[in-house]
Design a protein around this nucleic acid. Structure first.
Length: 116
DNA sequence: GTTGTGACTTTTT
DNA sequence: GAAAAAGCCACAA
């Protein structure tokens, strides 16, 4: 890995590799980016790119399996986008984190339907 | 160089 | 289960 890459570039690289129907937490991005406790920063990075990037930022959620964009003016947009990809949300606005969580090491191309 | 802020996480009440 | 506090780090002013 290129240690020259900034924290933000690594986060973006990871987000870009998230398969459709899968999600990652901010904590994971921070951990994989080299800073186990920079979860907040992971979110900050995405906030700077939201709307102006082609990255699947909607696939990044918090550790509780819920979206956090409703505070930033996105409303329920993220939840809608994820539902369109096959992610199911319960009444509490949460998704099955252990099942949908994706790690770069897996590199699984299997569609979410297959996981059922 | 200092201050404030936040799309977070975890532990504790 | 919900609410509060502390810890954490990059970025903008």
């Amino acid at each position: 890995m290129d240690v020259d890459a900034s924290f933000r570039e690594r986060v973006l690289a990871l987000v870009a590799r998230i398969p459709a129907g899968r999600v990652m937490t901010y904590g994971q991005l921070a951990l994989l980016a080299g800073h186990p406790s920079a979860a907040r920063q992971a979110g900050y990075v995405l906030n700077s790119l939201a709307g102006g990037s082609d990255l699947p930022w909607q696939r990044v959620i918090n550790a509780q399996g819920k979206v956090s964009t409703h505070k930033v003016g996105f409303g329920d947009l993220q939840e809608k986008l994820l539902r369109a990809e096959g992610v199911q949300f319960d009444a509490a606005g949460r998704c099955d984190l252990p099942r949908l969580l994706w790690w770069p090491e897996e590199e699984t191309d299997a569609p979410p339907e297959r996981l059922l």
